[in-house]
Design a protein around this nucleic acid. Sequence first.
DNA 1: AGTAGATATGTAAGCGCTTGCATTTTTGAT
DNA 2: ATCAAAAATGCAAGCGCTTACATATCTACT
Lengths: 341, 341
Amino acid sequence: MSKLGAAPTLDDVAKMAGVSTATVSRCLNSPDRVVKATRERVQSAVDALGYTPNFAAQVMAAKRTFTIGAIIPTMENAIFARGLQAFQEELHQHGYTLLVSSSAYKPDIEEEQIRTLAARGADGLLLIGHDRDPKIYEFLNRRNIPTLVAWSFTPDAPVPSIGFDNRAAMCALANRVIAMGHTRLGMISGVSAGNDRARLRIEGVKDAARQNGLDVSDLTIIETPYEIECGAQAFSQLMGQASHPTAILCGNDVLAVGALRRAQEIGLRVPKDVSITGFDDIELARIVSPALTTVHVPHREMGRKAALQLIEMVEKQVTDQGEQLDTSIIEGQSLGPPVGI
Amino acid sequence: MSKLGAAPTLDDVAKMAGVSTATVSRCLNSPDRVVKATRERVQSAVDALGYTPNFAAQVMAAKRTFTIGAIIPTMENAIFARGLQAFQEELHQHGYTLLVSSSAYKPDIEEEQIRTLAARGADGLLLIGHDRDPKIYEFLNRRNIPTLVAWSFTPDAPVPSIGFDNRAAMCALANRVIAMGHTRLGMISGVSAGNDRARLRIEGVKDAARQNGLDVSDLTIIETPYEIECGAQAFSQLMGQASHPTAILCGNDVLAVGALRRAQEIGLRVPKDVSITGFDDIELARIVSPALTTVHVPHREMGRKAALQLIEMVEKQVTDQGEQLDTSIIEGQSLGPPVGI
DNA sequence: AGTAGATATGTAAGCGCTTGCATTTTTGAT
DNA sequence: ATCAAAAATGCAAGCGCTTACATATCTACT
């Protein structure tokens, strides 16, 4: 018997069952290669000892971890929660474990975490968005770690992606806003540096402006971290302008909720006095009143498909193109026609 | 040089730098035990090769992972997010990595995850609440894995805890409600089986009722999962009763938001027609209107202190009692005096 | 009964790292 | 210069597991 406080090992089980460690290992990993009587003897030794395989040792010997790493920008709000949950569930179905960490939208932290996950032997990696130092892609490539990007689909990026067209989605929403009669648009965007989703959503608004003959230079865009309070501040800033916008497109629902709250605080009626739109369609968007008009993103589907594709990449060593998912516009009550001028 | 696609090893670095693997290891782990010239030579080999230590091998050899595991009931809503974030930050400060998984409030999943984390060599574990199969505590004890419970403080439990007195906190809130003049109380609680927080909060409401001479058997309590929609349904159910409550205490803010939304959907004004209270003081509580009257829990402080204490348990092999934190009542606009009968 | 072929089990070589101990080199006091 | 003590480095034994290969045992025929 091993020392107290130390976990029982394969060896302990083997001794107790009167077989070799190889047999115990086989009982656990490919039971059909072991005759029933032995298997049962081993099983009861396992139970008696409360044996659990040592993960590190398994990894060393088998060179597989059945672990997938995911690095998301934040856990503080719900943007990634639903998609990640679905991702996790699908992984679990296939016998994989998910390791999550969040980078707080900081590129250097993300890089450190990618290295950590690599060191921990992640069989594959899920990252959010494409924008990052090319050296990271080199590293991943050299290490031969299958990597998939989610929340943003771009066909010819260094790694395949599964997501949606942020630019087109935001453009569609902006077109809807303009079709309502708005000509003075404002935008509260997330910080676009190193964030392709934010960058593309800005482009989408600009596309719509151009398509409708609006002057793009009239469009005021404020970039700010994805936090409710920041959305509120940006809203004040936009509305403080001499000729303030009649509709404000927000880079995501969190910012939109901040803007909405501030609007109500300063006595503006939404959408009567000002329209506000979001992006993502997180639960929050439907809870506030008026409910947000926003872009629905198929989070669960994205998470599930990302898991399936990543597993395929890991197991088959193939790399396909990825997949583009559709978004749709959710009609809330936060968008209406402009009143007066 | 090792095979392509394989990570460089200590050996590769050692060869390139012309030293032994022991020296390379020391360079990385206790640089002061190596003379400067050597250290620099090794460092450049490390850089040139893009070497990252293999985590599994480190764990096997050193028997330490510098990893702390945490199992929380859910990531779907924000209840644990802030506390966990603080926990993580503090761990990071001390060189530890956090491994999180969520059990979806299912005891068997939690047990499996505890075993998984143990197999992965977690140096310590953070669990939420005390209620679980005693066998789990035996297992943890046998394996000698320092464990701390958060979100609920109970002095004489199997493992130390850092949290607050759920019962007293809820009792204080209920007293406040009763002091407003409410006599017909309803409660929408989380599922109390295997959840001491939920159970104690129910007790807290009962305590307050008794203290004020109300008939406890009049108190209708509905148990339902912690989801917005469930809160909404429970609200309908409570208000459908012949003599419905004038104030509804919810087991947490998520349920309260569901109740609030349903109230508004069916045209009840809060707090004029019915008062609603929450628990936890998550961001959501302040966003809805009217803002919730709720119990503030010092999430960040709890997370931070949990990290510090757990690290101490891991490093010093000591086990102190834990700590009780204070809660306070946040005055929102969802609680008011009852109107009419 | 005898034997080829299949099936079950054992043997032992690593996987990449840390670390106690042995050895070599440096240091500094004589 | 000399030598003991201190500092730097090397050697090699594991850590607990998987798995290729070797060996033993069992089938089902002739």
